Simulated assay, not measured.
Amino acid sequence: MKDILNIIKTRRSVRHFSDKKLPAAGIVKILEAGRWAPSGLNNQPWRFLVVEDKGLRDRIAAFTAYGSVIRRAAAILIVCLDTADSYNRDKDLMAVGASIQNMLLEAKNLGIGTCWLGEILNKKREVADTLELNKDLDLLAVVAMGYPAGKKQKGCRKALKELLINGSKYS
C-alpha cells in the first residue's frame, strides 16, 4: 500500500499536459475513488460527467480565463451536486468536496495530473447549458485531467502551529 500522506503532500495542480490519451481503466478508478467518499446519510449527492471530446472541451474552455488548461487536458471531469438527492446543502457541498479530493488523490496515485478549476463557476449556467445538464444538476467543479508535461512544482503550506486554534499541543 502506498503512503497516503506522501500522495497528499506531493499532489499539485497540473496545468500542462502531454498529448497522451487517458486509459478508460484509469478514469474508472478515479471515478470509483469519488464514489467512495463519505456523505451525510450516505446520500451520495455527486454526479460525474467525463468530457474527452476536444470540440466540446474547447466550447467549455471559452467560459473561463483558464481555458488553455482545459484545451491542453486529455479530458475534463464535470462534478455536480444532484439537488434532487440533496438533503442538506452545506453537508452535501462538503461531501462533493470530499469526493473531488478522493479523485484528485487517486489520479495522483495513477500518475495522472489534475487541476481543479474554480473560476469557471462564474459561468456555471452557460457551462451547464452547453453540456445540456438536467436542471437538478448544480455544477460545482471542473477538473482538468491528463498526463503531466513540464517541470514538477514544489508545494508550500503554512506551519501547522499557524492553523491550530487556541495553541493546541499538536504543533
Score class of each variant (00 low, 15 high):
Met1Gly: 13
Asp3Leu: 14
Asp3Thr: 14
Ile4Trp: 13
Asn6Pro: 13
Arg11Trp: 11
Ser13Thr: 06
Ser13Cys: 14
Val14Arg: 15
Arg15Gln: 13
Arg15Ser: 06
Phe17Gly: 06
Ser18Lys: 14
Leu22Gln: 10
Ala24Leu: 09
Ala33Val: 04
Ala33Ser: 08
Gly34Arg: 04
Gly34Phe: 10
Arg35Met: 02
Arg35Phe: 01
Arg35Lys: 10
Ala37His: 02
Ala37Glu: 02
Gln44Lys: 05
Arg47Tyr: 04
Arg47Met: 01
Glu52Val: 02
Asp53Pro: 03
Lys54Tyr: 06
Gly55Thr: 01
Gly55Gln: 14
Gly55Ser: 07
Arg57Asn: 00
Ile60Gln: 00
Ala61Arg: 00
Ala61Thr: 02
Phe63Leu: 03
Thr64Lys: 10
Thr64Glu: 00
Ala65Phe: 14
Ala65His: 12
Gly67Ala: 03
Ser68Lys: 14
Ser68Ala: 11
Arg71Lys: 08
Ala73Gly: 05
Ala75Met: 05
Val79Met: 02
Val79Glu: 09
Leu81Val: 10
Asp82Trp: 02
Thr83Arg: 10
Thr83Ser: 15
Ser86His: 06
Arg89Glu: 15
Arg89Ser: 08
Arg89Gly: 12
Asp92Pro: 12
Leu93Gln: 12
Met94Val: 11
Val96Asn: 01
Ala98Ile: 03
Ala98Arg: 04
Ile100Pro: 06
Ile100Arg: 10
Glu106Thr: 09
Ala107Glu: 04
Asn109Thr: 12
Leu110Thr: 07
Gly111Ala: 06
Gly113Ala: 11
Thr114Lys: 07
Trp116Asn: 07
Leu117Trp: 03
Leu117Ala: 02
Gly118Val: 10
Glu119Gln: 13
Glu119Trp: 15
Glu119Met: 08
Leu121Asp: 01
Leu121Cys: 07
Lys123Phe: 15
Arg125Gly: 15
Glu126Thr: 05
Ala128Arg: 05
Thr130Cys: 10
Leu133Asn: 04
Lys135Asn: 12
Lys135Thr: 14
Lys135Leu: 07
Asp136Ser: 15
Asp136Thr: 15
Asp138Gln: 15
Leu139Met: 06
Leu140Glu: 13
Leu140Thr: 10
Ala141Thr: 05
Val142Asp: 02
Met145Phe: 06
Tyr147Asp: 04
Pro148Gly: 02
Pro148His: 05
Pro148Tyr: 03
Ala149Leu: 11
Ala149Ile: 01
Lys154Pro: 09
Lys154Trp: 03
Leu164Met: 08
Leu164Tyr: 06
Ser168Met: 14
Ser168His: 14
